[in-house]
Write a protein that binds this DNA or RNA. Structure first.
Lengths: 141, 141
DNA sequence: CCAATATCGTTGCATTTGCAATGAAGTCAA
DNA sequence: TTGACTTCATTGCAAATGCAACGATATTGG
């Protein structure tokens, strides 16, 4: 008990590995496309889900709603996203990709797919159990 | 390609799972002991390694050296850590646990061990491949 | 020996973050 | 209908973060 190595502690291992992977991935598109991780998440979710609200993204993508709101606003300023009032419920804001936003996502997605494929390749047969374990952690909430 | 679900993207899964686990674990000791994650990491590493420098912790524990420096200073102010000049190289600072620091670590470590055991129990047979995969991610770099 | 260079811990600063509060809009029950 | 309550997105603010710069100390090459 008196000897306890942080590097064998699962919460630390998870945090450190996640930080490393995120940094590596972020480098690939920050320089080229100028977007941050929160912005990347919003873009991808909009591409996947169409016109959705801040609340929806917040619920699906593990981001505080203020984080979503600010990331979305930066994307609006950059011309990748447009904001409309929701028909029927005027509290909601519909976010959707602009043509430029679609084009940007189209350029980034192949990079993301390649990145993930390379990562899985280095993990070999542990890749799928890793994904299962992460999914279980997210489900067991 | 046009359909790409963030929830199947490994970097996102890692980040989200890590954030969830860290939040859950941090709740267990923040209320009771009043320490943050960076402070927890410094405490555990000092317990494991004895008297070490800021640089050493920075290298071993995936934290920016300014983050280590500030966490260490908070722990000094709280009475858990003491700072001494290193004999021989006066650029270095030796950080070491005080008696209170050792007592605090002694109370937290069982909680950490229990937390990890519960987490591994929910993961079942995917637990070990998960650890292997995370270790490989940390090595490969 | 000494001048250039490197390393260490701290600090300044701009940015990001989480949380709470706000105002606007919707819901519901009396 | 109205008044209390809920939900939504944004914003204010304090704290945390990453990065670069700094002063102090060590090391190294000539």
């Amino acid at each position: 008990m008196t000897d306890f190595d942080l590097n064998d502690f699962l919460p630390y291992q998870l945090a450190a590995a996640a930080a490393r992977v995120s940094r590596a991935f972020a480098e690939r598109y920050r320089a080229e496309f100028g977007i941050s991780i929160p912005e990347w998440r919003v873009l991808v979710h909009l591409n996947h889900a169409g016109a959705v609200s801040v609340r929806e993204i917040h619920a699906r993508v593990d981001m505080d709603k203020s984080k979503v709101s600010r990331a979305a606003q930066r994307l609006v300023d950059a011309g990748y996203v447009e904001k409309r009032g929701h028909a029927g419920d005027r509290r909601l804001v519909d976010l959707r990709l602009t043509a430029e936003g679609h084009a940007l996502v189209g350029r980034i997605l192949p990079i993301a797919a390649t990145f993930q494929a390379e990562l899985l390749a280095t993990l070999g047969e542990d890749g799928m159990p890793l994904k299962r374990a992460l999914t279980r952690i997210m489900e067991g909430k």
